[in-house]
Design a binder for these strands. Structure first.
Length: 560
RNA sequence: UGCCCGAUAGUGUAACGGUAACACUCAUGAUUCUGGAUCAUGUUUUGGGGGUUCAAAUCCUCCUCGGGCAGCCA
Protein backbone atom coordinates (compact mmCIF):
# COMPACT_ATOMS: atom_id res chain seq x y z
CA UNK A 1 0.00 0.00 0.00
CA UNK A 2 2.83 2.31 0.77
CA UNK A 3 4.62 1.34 -2.40
CA UNK A 4 4.83 4.47 -4.46
CA UNK A 5 4.56 2.57 -7.69
CA UNK A 6 1.15 3.93 -8.58
CA UNK A 7 1.98 7.41 -7.45
CA UNK A 8 3.30 9.95 -9.86
CA UNK A 9 7.00 10.05 -10.33
CA UNK A 10 9.21 12.49 -8.52
CA UNK A 11 12.26 14.12 -10.06
CA UNK A 12 14.65 11.57 -8.57
CA UNK A 13 12.74 8.63 -10.00
CA UNK A 14 12.85 10.39 -13.32
CA UNK A 15 16.62 10.78 -13.11
CA UNK A 16 17.06 7.14 -12.17
CA UNK A 17 14.83 5.94 -14.97
CA UNK A 18 16.77 8.01 -17.45
CA UNK A 19 20.01 6.55 -16.11
CA UNK A 20 18.65 3.05 -16.40
CA UNK A 21 17.46 3.48 -19.94
CA UNK A 22 20.77 5.11 -20.85
CA UNK A 23 22.52 2.05 -19.50
CA UNK A 24 24.41 4.02 -16.89
CA UNK A 25 25.91 1.87 -14.09
CA UNK A 26 24.79 -1.11 -16.19
CA UNK A 27 21.31 -0.31 -15.00
CA UNK A 28 22.11 -0.95 -11.35
CA UNK A 29 20.68 1.18 -8.56
CA UNK A 30 22.55 1.39 -5.27
CA UNK A 31 21.53 3.96 -2.70
CA UNK A 32 22.61 4.53 0.83
CA UNK A 33 21.35 5.93 4.10
CA UNK A 34 24.33 7.56 5.82
CA UNK A 35 23.50 8.72 9.36
CA UNK A 36 26.12 10.12 11.65
CA UNK A 37 25.88 8.14 14.88
CA UNK A 38 25.57 11.18 17.07
CA UNK A 39 21.85 11.37 17.75
CA UNK A 40 18.50 9.74 17.38
CA UNK A 41 16.65 9.41 14.11
CA UNK A 42 13.55 11.53 13.61
CA UNK A 43 10.66 11.76 11.17
CA UNK A 44 12.84 13.79 8.80
CA UNK A 45 15.29 10.89 8.63
CA UNK A 46 12.31 8.61 8.03
CA UNK A 47 11.61 10.55 4.85
CA UNK A 48 15.17 9.95 3.71
CA UNK A 49 15.10 6.29 4.72
CA UNK A 50 11.85 5.66 2.87
CA UNK A 51 13.22 7.50 -0.14
CA UNK A 52 16.52 5.64 -0.33
CA UNK A 53 15.24 2.19 0.51
CA UNK A 54 12.06 2.78 -1.48
CA UNK A 55 13.96 3.75 -4.62
CA UNK A 56 16.22 0.73 -4.42
CA UNK A 57 13.25 -1.55 -3.85
CA UNK A 58 11.40 -0.01 -6.76
CA UNK A 59 14.27 -0.36 -9.21
CA UNK A 60 15.55 -3.71 -8.05
CA UNK A 61 18.60 -2.29 -6.32
CA UNK A 62 20.00 -2.33 -2.82
CA UNK A 63 20.49 0.21 -0.07
CA UNK A 64 23.49 0.38 2.19
CA UNK A 65 23.30 1.50 5.78
CA UNK A 66 26.50 3.41 6.35
CA UNK A 67 27.46 5.12 9.54
CA UNK A 68 29.29 8.31 8.80
CA UNK A 69 31.66 8.09 11.71
CA UNK A 70 34.47 10.43 10.74
CA UNK A 71 34.39 12.58 13.84
CA UNK A 72 35.26 10.50 16.93
CA UNK A 73 34.63 13.42 19.25
CA UNK A 74 30.93 13.54 18.52
CA UNK A 75 29.93 9.99 17.94
CA UNK A 76 28.86 7.26 20.29
CA UNK A 77 28.14 3.55 20.00
CA UNK A 78 24.78 3.79 21.74
CA UNK A 79 23.38 5.70 18.78
CA UNK A 80 24.35 2.98 16.35
CA UNK A 81 22.01 0.47 17.95
CA UNK A 82 19.14 2.92 18.14
CA UNK A 83 19.57 3.80 14.48
CA UNK A 84 19.56 0.15 13.44
CA UNK A 85 16.49 -0.50 15.55
CA UNK A 86 14.66 2.43 14.02
CA UNK A 87 15.47 1.59 10.41
CA UNK A 88 14.36 -1.99 10.96
CA UNK A 89 11.23 -0.92 12.76
CA UNK A 90 10.34 1.28 9.81
CA UNK A 91 10.37 -1.90 7.78
CA UNK A 92 13.62 -1.75 5.86
CA UNK A 93 16.40 -4.26 5.49
CA UNK A 94 19.98 -3.53 4.56
CA UNK A 95 20.84 -7.22 4.40
CA UNK A 96 24.59 -7.58 4.80
CA UNK A 97 25.21 -4.07 3.59
CA UNK A 98 26.04 -2.34 6.82
CA UNK A 99 29.19 -0.27 6.69
CA UNK A 100 31.12 2.40 8.49
CA UNK A 101 33.04 5.22 6.92
CA UNK A 102 35.76 4.18 9.35
CA UNK A 103 35.96 0.83 7.51
CA UNK A 104 37.63 2.85 4.77
CA UNK A 105 40.16 4.83 6.75
CA UNK A 106 43.05 2.91 5.21
CA UNK A 107 41.75 3.36 1.68
CA UNK A 108 40.96 6.98 2.34
CA UNK A 109 44.53 7.48 3.43
CA UNK A 110 45.75 5.92 0.19
CA UNK A 111 43.51 8.20 -1.82
CA UNK A 112 44.98 11.17 0.02
CA UNK A 113 48.39 10.01 -1.12
CA UNK A 114 47.12 9.91 -4.67
CA UNK A 115 45.96 13.49 -4.41
CA UNK A 116 49.24 14.61 -2.89
CA UNK A 117 51.23 12.88 -5.58
CA UNK A 118 49.12 14.54 -8.24
CA UNK A 119 49.96 17.87 -6.63
CA UNK A 120 46.31 18.26 -5.65
CA UNK A 121 46.64 18.24 -1.87
CA UNK A 122 49.02 19.87 0.53
CA UNK A 123 49.80 20.06 4.20
CA UNK A 124 48.99 23.48 5.55
CA UNK A 125 50.32 24.87 8.81
CA UNK A 126 48.02 27.86 8.93
CA UNK A 127 46.10 27.79 12.19
CA UNK A 128 42.32 27.65 12.24
CA UNK A 129 41.90 31.37 12.59
CA UNK A 130 44.33 32.18 9.79
CA UNK A 131 42.67 29.60 7.61
CA UNK A 132 39.39 31.38 8.06
CA UNK A 133 40.95 34.75 7.24
CA UNK A 134 42.62 33.37 4.15
CA UNK A 135 39.37 31.84 2.96
CA UNK A 136 38.02 35.27 2.10
CA UNK A 137 34.34 36.12 2.39
CA UNK A 138 31.17 35.57 0.44
CA UNK A 139 31.99 38.56 -1.72
CA UNK A 140 35.79 38.55 -1.76
CA UNK A 141 38.10 35.83 -3.01
CA UNK A 142 40.45 34.07 -0.65
CA UNK A 143 44.23 34.19 -0.48
CA UNK A 144 46.54 31.29 -1.07
CA UNK A 145 48.33 29.87 1.94
CA UNK A 146 52.12 30.25 1.97
CA UNK A 147 52.25 26.45 2.27
CA UNK A 148 50.26 25.91 -0.88
CA UNK A 149 53.23 25.29 -3.12
CA UNK A 150 55.18 22.80 -1.12
CA UNK A 151 56.76 20.04 -3.14
CA UNK A 152 55.09 16.69 -3.40
CA UNK A 153 57.87 15.10 -1.36
CA UNK A 154 57.54 17.62 1.39
CA UNK A 155 53.79 17.05 1.53
CA UNK A 156 54.22 13.31 1.57
CA UNK A 157 56.66 13.57 4.43
CA UNK A 158 54.55 16.00 6.42
CA UNK A 159 51.35 14.01 5.92
CA UNK A 160 53.16 10.91 7.10
CA UNK A 161 54.20 12.82 10.19
CA UNK A 162 50.64 13.92 10.74
CA UNK A 163 49.57 10.34 10.73
CA UNK A 164 52.38 9.32 13.01
CA UNK A 165 51.33 11.80 15.63
CA UNK A 166 54.36 14.03 15.29
CA UNK A 167 52.15 17.13 15.37
CA UNK A 168 49.73 18.45 17.89
CA UNK A 169 46.06 18.95 17.12
CA UNK A 170 45.63 22.10 15.10
CA UNK A 171 49.25 22.30 14.00
CA UNK A 172 48.41 21.42 10.46
CA UNK A 173 45.81 19.93 8.14
CA UNK A 174 45.72 18.35 4.72
CA UNK A 175 43.94 20.51 2.19
CA UNK A 176 42.74 19.90 -1.32
CA UNK A 177 44.39 22.27 -3.76
CA UNK A 178 41.54 23.63 -5.84
CA UNK A 179 40.88 27.34 -6.18
CA UNK A 180 41.10 29.99 -3.48
CA UNK A 181 39.22 32.42 -5.70
CA UNK A 182 36.26 30.16 -6.39
CA UNK A 183 32.89 31.81 -5.88
CA UNK A 184 31.92 28.54 -4.20
CA UNK A 185 33.56 28.65 -0.80
CA UNK A 186 33.60 24.88 -0.62
CA UNK A 187 36.14 24.86 -3.41
CA UNK A 188 38.58 27.22 -1.69
CA UNK A 189 41.08 24.53 -0.76
CA UNK A 190 38.85 22.64 1.67
CA UNK A 191 40.42 20.81 4.57
CA UNK A 192 40.25 17.08 3.98
CA UNK A 193 42.16 15.73 6.99
CA UNK A 194 42.58 17.12 10.48
CA UNK A 195 44.46 15.90 13.51
CA UNK A 196 42.44 14.59 16.44
CA UNK A 197 43.95 12.59 19.24
CA UNK A 198 40.63 11.01 19.95
CA UNK A 199 39.64 7.43 20.57
CA UNK A 200 37.41 6.16 17.81
CA UNK A 201 34.61 3.75 18.65
CA UNK A 202 35.75 1.32 15.98
CA UNK A 203 39.35 2.05 15.08
CA UNK A 204 40.43 2.78 18.62
CA UNK A 205 43.70 4.70 18.71
CA UNK A 206 44.95 3.58 15.35
CA UNK A 207 44.44 6.99 13.84
CA UNK A 208 45.13 10.51 14.97
CA UNK A 209 44.09 12.03 11.68
CA UNK A 210 40.48 11.87 10.55
CA UNK A 211 39.01 12.69 7.15
CA UNK A 212 36.45 15.46 6.71
CA UNK A 213 32.92 14.82 5.52
CA UNK A 214 33.22 16.07 1.94
CA UNK A 215 36.21 13.90 1.32
CA UNK A 216 35.19 10.81 3.25
CA UNK A 217 31.60 10.79 2.14
CA UNK A 218 32.26 11.09 -1.57
CA UNK A 219 34.90 8.38 -1.50
CA UNK A 220 32.86 6.08 0.73
CA UNK A 221 30.08 6.29 -1.82
CA UNK A 222 32.53 5.54 -4.59
CA UNK A 223 34.12 2.62 -2.74
CA UNK A 224 30.72 1.06 -2.14
CA UNK A 225 29.62 1.56 -5.72
CA UNK A 226 26.74 3.80 -4.80
CA UNK A 227 25.04 4.94 -7.97
CA UNK A 228 22.75 7.64 -6.62
CA UNK A 229 23.85 9.52 -3.54
CA UNK A 230 20.77 11.28 -2.29
CA UNK A 231 21.14 14.03 0.27
CA UNK A 232 19.48 17.21 1.42
CA UNK A 233 19.60 20.63 -0.20
CA UNK A 234 22.28 22.18 1.99
CA UNK A 235 24.82 19.96 0.25
CA UNK A 236 24.03 21.33 -3.15
CA UNK A 237 27.02 23.68 -3.01
CA UNK A 238 29.17 20.72 -2.07
CA UNK A 239 28.40 18.80 -5.22
CA UNK A 240 31.29 20.30 -7.23
CA UNK A 241 33.60 19.23 -4.45
CA UNK A 242 32.03 15.78 -4.29
CA UNK A 243 32.63 15.40 -8.01
CA UNK A 244 36.15 16.78 -7.72
CA UNK A 245 37.08 14.30 -5.01
CA UNK A 246 35.88 11.16 -6.78
CA UNK A 247 37.36 12.33 -10.06
CA UNK A 248 40.78 13.47 -8.86
CA UNK A 249 41.31 10.63 -6.43
CA UNK A 250 40.75 8.23 -9.34
CA UNK A 251 37.95 6.51 -7.44
CA UNK A 252 36.56 3.28 -8.89
CA UNK A 253 33.24 4.85 -9.78
CA UNK A 254 31.45 8.15 -9.98
CA UNK A 255 28.29 8.24 -7.93
CA UNK A 256 25.83 10.98 -8.68
CA UNK A 257 24.78 13.26 -5.86
CA UNK A 258 21.15 14.35 -5.96
CA UNK A 259 19.69 16.80 -3.48
CA UNK A 260 16.11 17.07 -2.20
CA UNK A 261 14.35 19.29 0.32
CA UNK A 262 14.37 18.07 3.89
CA UNK A 263 11.11 17.63 5.74
CA UNK A 264 9.64 20.38 7.86
CA UNK A 265 6.46 19.83 9.81
CA UNK A 266 4.11 22.27 11.45
CA UNK A 267 4.20 22.22 15.27
CA UNK A 268 7.52 20.39 15.18
CA UNK A 269 11.18 21.27 15.58
CA UNK A 270 13.48 18.94 13.74
CA UNK A 271 17.07 20.01 14.23
CA UNK A 272 19.27 17.77 16.35
CA UNK A 273 20.39 20.77 18.34
CA UNK A 274 16.86 21.78 19.27
CA UNK A 275 15.72 18.27 20.02
CA UNK A 276 18.74 17.86 22.24
CA UNK A 277 17.81 21.03 24.03
CA UNK A 278 14.29 19.78 24.68
CA UNK A 279 15.80 16.70 26.27
CA UNK A 280 18.64 18.39 28.15
CA UNK A 281 16.51 21.17 29.57
CA UNK A 282 13.83 18.75 30.66
CA UNK A 283 10.97 19.93 28.49
CA UNK A 284 10.44 16.28 27.64
CA UNK A 285 11.36 13.10 29.46
CA UNK A 286 13.90 11.92 26.90
CA UNK A 287 14.55 11.16 23.25
CA UNK A 288 11.70 8.68 23.30
CA UNK A 289 9.20 10.97 24.97
CA UNK A 290 5.94 10.38 23.10
CA UNK A 291 5.84 14.06 22.16
CA UNK A 292 9.18 13.91 20.38
CA UNK A 293 9.29 13.63 16.57
CA UNK A 294 12.01 11.00 16.94
CA UNK A 295 11.30 7.56 15.58
CA UNK A 296 11.57 6.20 19.11
CA UNK A 297 9.17 8.86 20.37
CA UNK A 298 6.66 8.19 17.63
CA UNK A 299 6.94 4.47 18.25
CA UNK A 300 6.29 4.89 21.95
CA UNK A 301 3.41 7.19 21.13
CA UNK A 302 1.81 4.39 19.12
CA UNK A 303 2.57 5.43 15.56
CA UNK A 304 2.84 2.54 13.12
CA UNK A 305 5.61 2.05 10.58
CA UNK A 306 2.92 1.70 7.92
CA UNK A 307 1.55 5.14 8.72
CA UNK A 308 4.97 6.72 8.58
CA UNK A 309 5.77 5.06 5.27
CA UNK A 310 2.44 6.15 3.85
CA UNK A 311 3.15 9.67 5.03
CA UNK A 312 6.55 9.63 3.37
CA UNK A 313 4.95 8.49 0.14
CA UNK A 314 2.28 11.17 0.25
CA UNK A 315 4.49 14.16 0.98
CA UNK A 316 6.47 13.52 -2.17
CA UNK A 317 9.98 14.61 -2.96
CA UNK A 318 10.97 17.93 -4.44
CA UNK A 319 13.58 20.66 -4.31
CA UNK A 320 11.44 23.44 -2.90
CA UNK A 321 11.62 24.13 0.82
CA UNK A 322 8.28 23.31 2.34
CA UNK A 323 6.47 22.68 5.57
CA UNK A 324 4.06 19.80 5.64
CA UNK A 325 0.85 20.11 7.63
CA UNK A 326 0.99 17.94 10.74
CA UNK A 327 -2.61 17.01 9.96
CA UNK A 328 -1.39 14.89 7.07
CA UNK A 329 0.73 12.74 9.38
CA UNK A 330 -2.24 12.30 11.68
CA UNK A 331 -4.44 11.46 8.72
CA UNK A 332 -2.09 8.66 7.65
CA UNK A 333 -1.99 7.39 11.20
CA UNK A 334 -5.75 7.34 11.66
CA UNK A 335 -6.22 5.69 8.30
CA UNK A 336 -4.05 2.79 9.44
CA UNK A 337 -5.31 2.61 13.00
CA UNK A 338 -8.95 2.83 11.97
CA UNK A 339 -8.47 -0.30 9.92
CA UNK A 340 -6.41 -2.20 12.41
CA UNK A 341 -6.99 -1.14 15.99
CA UNK A 342 -9.53 -3.03 18.09
CA UNK A 343 -12.22 -0.95 19.76
CA UNK A 344 -12.53 -0.74 23.51
CA UNK A 345 -14.46 1.41 25.94
CA UNK A 346 -12.71 3.61 28.47
CA UNK A 347 -14.25 6.42 30.48
CA UNK A 348 -11.76 9.18 31.11
CA UNK A 349 -13.88 11.48 33.24
CA UNK A 350 -16.46 9.26 34.95
CA UNK A 351 -19.99 10.24 35.85
CA UNK A 352 -22.08 7.70 37.70
CA UNK A 353 -25.30 6.47 36.13
CA UNK A 354 -27.86 4.37 38.00
CA UNK A 355 -30.26 2.41 35.86
CA UNK A 356 -33.07 2.22 38.33
CA UNK A 357 -35.22 -0.38 36.62
CA UNK A 358 -32.30 -2.75 36.11
CA UNK A 359 -32.03 -5.54 38.72
CA UNK A 360 -29.49 -5.11 41.47
CA UNK A 361 -26.71 -7.67 41.70
CA UNK A 362 -27.19 -8.70 38.11
CA UNK A 363 -24.38 -8.73 35.59
CA UNK A 364 -24.84 -9.75 32.02
CA UNK A 365 -22.04 -10.22 29.56
CA UNK A 366 -22.65 -8.55 26.25
CA UNK A 367 -20.84 -9.00 22.97
CA UNK A 368 -18.81 -6.15 21.60
CA UNK A 369 -17.52 -6.24 18.07
CA UNK A 370 -13.78 -5.53 17.97
CA UNK A 371 -13.52 -3.62 14.74
CA UNK A 372 -16.33 -2.72 12.38
CA UNK A 373 -13.79 -2.04 9.64
CA UNK A 374 -12.82 -5.68 9.52
CA UNK A 375 -14.87 -8.07 7.38
CA UNK A 376 -16.00 -10.23 10.30
CA UNK A 377 -16.08 -7.33 12.71
CA UNK A 378 -12.67 -8.44 13.87
CA UNK A 379 -14.19 -10.91 16.29
CA UNK A 380 -15.65 -9.80 19.57
CA UNK A 381 -15.07 -9.57 23.28
CA UNK A 382 -17.41 -9.81 26.28
CA UNK A 383 -18.40 -6.68 28.14
CA UNK A 384 -20.14 -6.76 31.53
CA UNK A 385 -23.25 -4.65 32.08
CA UNK A 386 -24.88 -3.86 35.39
CA UNK A 387 -27.18 -1.47 37.23
CA UNK A 388 -24.45 0.96 38.05
CA UNK A 389 -22.24 2.27 35.27
CA UNK A 390 -20.07 5.23 34.42
CA UNK A 391 -20.32 7.37 31.35
CA UNK A 392 -18.22 10.29 30.22
CA UNK A 393 -19.06 13.43 32.18
CA UNK A 394 -19.32 15.44 28.99
CA UNK A 395 -21.94 13.00 27.72
CA UNK A 396 -24.54 14.47 30.06
CA UNK A 397 -25.94 17.98 30.26
CA UNK A 398 -28.78 19.30 32.37
CA UNK A 399 -29.46 22.07 29.95
CA UNK A 400 -28.16 21.01 26.55
CA UNK A 401 -27.64 23.33 23.62
CA UNK A 402 -29.43 22.46 20.43
CA UNK A 403 -28.00 19.62 18.36
CA UNK A 404 -26.65 18.03 21.53
CA UNK A 405 -27.45 14.35 20.97
CA UNK A 406 -26.17 13.01 24.24
CA UNK A 407 -27.86 12.30 27.54
CA UNK A 408 -30.01 15.00 29.10
CA UNK A 409 -33.20 14.99 31.17
CA UNK A 410 -35.91 13.21 29.24
CA UNK A 411 -33.59 12.23 26.42
CA UNK A 412 -32.82 8.73 25.31
CA UNK A 413 -29.47 7.50 24.12
CA UNK A 414 -27.88 4.20 23.30
CA UNK A 415 -25.20 2.66 25.46
CA UNK A 416 -22.87 1.14 22.92
CA UNK A 417 -23.36 -2.62 22.60
CA UNK A 418 -25.87 -2.55 25.51
CA UNK A 419 -29.27 -0.86 25.87
CA UNK A 420 -31.20 2.28 25.26
CA UNK A 421 -31.42 4.35 28.41
CA UNK A 422 -33.49 7.43 29.14
CA UNK A 423 -32.56 10.02 31.73
CA UNK A 424 -35.32 10.34 34.30
CA UNK A 425 -33.55 12.26 37.05
CA UNK A 426 -30.18 13.45 38.30
CA UNK A 427 -28.50 14.57 41.50
CA UNK A 428 -26.19 17.48 42.14
CA UNK A 429 -23.91 18.53 44.95
CA UNK A 430 -24.05 21.85 46.81
CA UNK A 431 -22.37 23.76 44.01
CA UNK A 432 -24.56 22.39 41.28
CA UNK A 433 -22.19 19.75 39.90
CA UNK A 434 -23.92 16.64 38.69
CA UNK A 435 -23.02 13.71 40.91
CA UNK A 436 -25.32 11.05 39.58
CA UNK A 437 -27.67 10.48 36.71
CA UNK A 438 -30.71 8.29 37.08
CA UNK A 439 -31.90 6.40 34.02
CA UNK A 440 -34.35 3.76 32.97
CA UNK A 441 -33.42 1.24 30.36
CA UNK A 442 -35.50 -0.51 27.74
CA UNK A 443 -35.01 -4.26 28.23
CA UNK A 444 -36.12 -4.84 24.65
CA UNK A 445 -33.18 -2.89 23.30
CA UNK A 446 -30.56 -5.42 24.34
CA UNK A 447 -27.48 -5.23 22.17
CA UNK A 448 -28.19 -1.59 21.40
CA UNK A 449 -31.05 -1.72 18.94
CA UNK A 450 -34.80 -2.14 19.01
CA UNK A 451 -37.33 -3.77 16.74
CA UNK A 452 -39.52 -0.72 16.47
CA UNK A 453 -36.77 1.07 14.60
CA UNK A 454 -36.94 4.03 16.95
CA UNK A 455 -34.45 6.76 16.26
CA UNK A 456 -31.79 7.14 18.92
CA UNK A 457 -29.34 9.72 17.79
CA UNK A 458 -26.72 9.57 20.51
CA UNK A 459 -24.51 6.67 21.47
CA UNK A 460 -22.26 6.73 24.51
CA UNK A 461 -19.45 4.52 25.66
CA UNK A 462 -19.61 3.33 29.26
CA UNK A 463 -18.14 0.90 31.78
CA UNK A 464 -19.77 -1.21 34.43
CA UNK A 465 -18.91 0.31 37.81
CA UNK A 466 -18.25 -2.95 39.57
CA UNK A 467 -16.15 -4.44 36.77
CA UNK A 468 -14.15 -1.48 35.52
CA UNK A 469 -10.37 -1.62 35.55
CA UNK A 470 -8.47 1.45 36.66
CA UNK A 471 -5.76 2.76 34.42
CA UNK A 472 -3.62 5.80 33.85
CA UNK A 473 -4.13 7.63 30.61
CA UNK A 474 -1.71 10.14 29.16
CA UNK A 475 -3.23 12.60 26.75
CA UNK A 476 -0.68 14.10 24.44
CA UNK A 477 -1.05 17.01 22.11
CA UNK A 478 1.42 19.03 20.06
CA UNK A 479 4.58 20.05 21.89
CA UNK A 480 4.25 23.56 20.52
CA UNK A 481 1.40 25.98 20.60
CA UNK A 482 2.33 27.60 17.28
CA UNK A 483 2.38 25.96 13.85
CA UNK A 484 5.78 27.57 13.50
CA UNK A 485 7.56 26.88 16.79
CA UNK A 486 10.15 29.44 15.75
CA UNK A 487 7.63 32.27 15.76
CA UNK A 488 8.76 35.06 18.03
CA UNK A 489 12.36 33.95 17.84
CA UNK A 490 12.71 31.42 20.63
CA UNK A 491 11.10 28.02 20.21
CA UNK A 492 11.08 27.15 23.90
CA UNK A 493 8.74 30.09 24.47
CA UNK A 494 6.19 28.40 22.24
CA UNK A 495 6.15 25.15 24.13
CA UNK A 496 2.63 23.96 24.82
CA UNK A 497 2.17 23.93 28.61
CA UNK A 498 -0.52 21.28 28.29
CA UNK A 499 1.09 18.98 25.77
CA UNK A 500 0.74 16.23 28.35
CA UNK A 501 -2.32 15.78 30.48
CA UNK A 502 -2.30 12.84 32.85
CA UNK A 503 -5.49 11.14 33.91
CA UNK A 504 -4.58 9.02 36.86
CA UNK A 505 -7.75 7.05 37.20
CA UNK A 506 -9.60 6.37 34.04
CA UNK A 507 -11.98 3.42 34.00
CA UNK A 508 -11.56 0.75 31.37
CA UNK A 509 -13.67 -2.22 30.38
CA UNK A 510 -12.17 -5.37 31.91
CA UNK A 511 -10.83 -6.88 28.68
CA UNK A 512 -8.23 -4.13 28.68
CA UNK A 513 -6.52 -5.69 31.68
CA UNK A 514 -4.83 -7.85 29.07
CA UNK A 515 -3.39 -4.93 27.16
CA UNK A 516 0.35 -5.18 26.58
CA UNK A 517 2.90 -2.92 24.95
CA UNK A 518 2.80 -3.32 21.21
CA UNK A 519 -0.99 -3.46 21.12
CA UNK A 520 -3.04 -0.59 19.79
CA UNK A 521 -6.65 0.25 20.52
CA UNK A 522 -9.29 2.70 19.63
CA UNK A 523 -10.99 3.91 22.79
CA UNK A 524 -14.44 4.47 21.43
CA UNK A 525 -15.24 8.10 20.66
CA UNK A 526 -11.89 9.20 22.17
CA UNK A 527 -8.98 8.26 20.00
CA UNK A 528 -6.27 5.69 19.54
CA UNK A 529 -4.25 4.52 22.50
CA UNK A 530 -1.44 2.11 23.27
CA UNK A 531 0.07 0.75 26.47
CA UNK A 532 3.20 2.70 27.33
CA UNK A 533 6.22 0.55 26.56
CA UNK A 534 8.10 1.73 29.64
CA UNK A 535 5.53 2.25 32.35
CA UNK A 536 2.64 -0.08 31.62
CA UNK A 537 2.75 -3.51 33.23
CA UNK A 538 0.64 -6.10 34.98
CA UNK A 539 -1.48 -4.44 37.57
CA UNK A 540 -0.61 -0.96 36.46
CA UNK A 541 -1.98 -0.08 33.09
CA UNK A 542 -0.72 3.09 31.46
CA UNK A 543 -2.02 4.18 28.08
CA UNK A 544 -0.66 6.82 25.75
CA UNK A 545 -3.03 8.62 23.48
CA UNK A 546 -1.57 8.19 20.03
CA UNK A 547 -3.96 10.52 18.27
CA UNK A 548 -7.50 11.72 18.83
CA UNK A 549 -10.42 10.76 16.68
CA UNK A 550 -11.63 13.53 14.42
CA UNK A 551 -14.01 15.50 16.56
CA UNK A 552 -16.77 17.13 14.56
CA UNK A 553 -18.90 17.83 17.61
CA UNK A 554 -15.96 19.37 19.46
CA UNK A 555 -15.49 21.68 16.53
CA UNK A 556 -19.15 22.66 16.42
CA UNK A 557 -19.54 23.16 20.15
CA UNK A 558 -16.37 25.20 20.60
CA UNK A 559 -17.52 27.40 17.74
CA UNK A 560 -20.77 27.90 19.73
C1' U B 1 25.28 43.23 -1.98
C1' G B 2 29.45 36.95 -4.45
C1' C B 3 27.85 31.94 -5.81
C1' C B 4 24.08 28.10 -5.81
C1' C B 5 18.92 26.60 -5.41
C1' G B 6 13.78 27.44 -5.35
C1' A B 7 8.59 29.82 -6.21
C1' U B 8 1.57 26.01 -8.85
C1' A B 9 -5.28 26.45 -4.09
C1' G B 10 -4.57 27.27 3.20
C1' U B 11 -0.63 22.86 3.12
C1' G B 12 2.01 19.29 0.19
C1' U B 13 2.66 17.40 -4.67
C1' A B 14 1.41 16.59 -10.21
C1' A B 15 0.83 18.42 -15.13
C1' C B 16 7.58 18.39 -18.81
C1' G B 17 4.77 23.43 -25.21
C1' G B 18 -1.78 21.79 -26.12
C1' U B 19 -5.35 25.38 -22.29
C1' A B 20 -4.21 23.48 -14.34
C1' A B 21 -5.16 18.47 -11.11
C1' C B 22 -4.63 14.88 -6.87
C1' A B 23 -4.31 14.37 -1.60
C1' C B 24 -4.70 16.70 3.13
C1' U B 25 -7.15 20.83 5.45
C1' C B 26 -11.71 23.72 5.50
C1' A B 27 -17.17 24.04 4.52
C1' U B 28 -22.06 21.73 3.38
C1' G B 29 -25.23 17.56 3.02
C1' A B 30 -26.35 12.13 3.17
C1' U B 31 -25.55 7.98 6.06
C1' U B 32 -24.15 5.54 10.59
C1' C B 33 -25.01 1.14 17.15
C1' U B 34 -18.39 5.63 17.49
C1' G B 35 -20.69 13.43 16.41
C1' G B 36 -15.42 7.92 14.10
C1' A B 37 -15.52 5.59 9.37
C1' U B 38 -18.00 5.94 4.59
C1' C B 39 -20.34 8.67 0.43
C1' A B 40 -21.58 13.18 -2.22
C1' U B 41 -20.91 18.37 -3.06
C1' G B 42 -18.39 22.98 -2.61
C1' U B 43 -14.65 27.35 -1.81
C1' U B 44 -9.75 28.46 -3.24
C1' U B 45 -4.27 27.93 -7.52
C1' U B 46 0.42 28.98 -11.77
C1' G B 47 4.86 35.63 -7.48
C1' G B 48 5.35 40.25 -11.11
C1' G B 49 6.78 42.56 -16.00
C1' G B 50 8.41 41.74 -20.84
C1' G B 51 9.49 38.22 -24.91
C1' U B 52 9.30 33.50 -28.23
C1' U B 53 4.92 30.63 -30.08
C1' C B 54 -1.16 29.34 -33.31
C1' A B 55 -0.61 27.90 -28.07
C1' A B 56 3.47 29.00 -21.97
C1' A B 57 2.83 26.75 -15.20
C1' U B 58 6.32 24.66 -18.75
C1' C B 59 11.18 28.00 -23.10
C1' C B 60 14.08 33.04 -22.85
C1' U B 61 14.77 37.66 -20.06
C1' C B 62 14.49 41.17 -16.16
C1' C B 63 12.53 41.82 -11.32
C1' U B 64 10.53 40.38 -6.56
C1' C B 65 10.44 37.14 -2.65
C1' G B 66 12.27 32.74 0.05
C1' G B 67 16.32 29.24 1.30
C1' G B 68 21.58 27.65 1.57
C1' C B 69 26.98 28.70 1.85
C1' A B 70 32.55 32.08 5.01
C1' G B 71 33.71 24.47 10.88
C1' C B 72 40.14 21.79 11.46
C1' C B 73 30.95 19.68 12.04
C1' A B 74 27.97 16.39 9.16
Amino acid sequence: MDENTNLLKNFIQRIIEEDISAGKNSGRVVTRFPPEPNGYLHIGHAKSICLNFGLARQYGGVTHLRFDDTNPEKEEVEYIESIKTDVKWLGFDWGDKMFFASDYFDKLYEYALVLIKKGLAYVDTLDAEKTREYRGTLTEPGKESPDRNRTVDENLELFEKMRNGDFKEGDCVLRAKIDMASPNLNMRDPVIYRIKFAHHHRTGDKWCIYPMYDYAHALSDAIEGITHSICTLEFEDHRPLYDWVVREADAPCRPQQIEFARLNLTYVVMSKRKLLRLVKEGYVSGWDDPRMPTISGLRRRGYTPEAIREFAARIGVAKADSTVDYALLEYCLREDLNRNADRRMVVLDPLKVIIRNYPENKTEWLDGENNPEQPDGGGSRKIPFSREIFIEREDFMIDPPKKYFRLSPGNEIRLKHAYYVKCVDYKTDGSGNVTEVICEYDPKSRGGWSEDGRKVKGTSHWVSAADAVECEVRLYSTLFIKPDPEEGGEFVHNINPSSLQIIEKALAEPSLAEARPGMRFQFLRQGYFCPDSLDSRDGRLVFNRTVTLKDTWGKISSRN
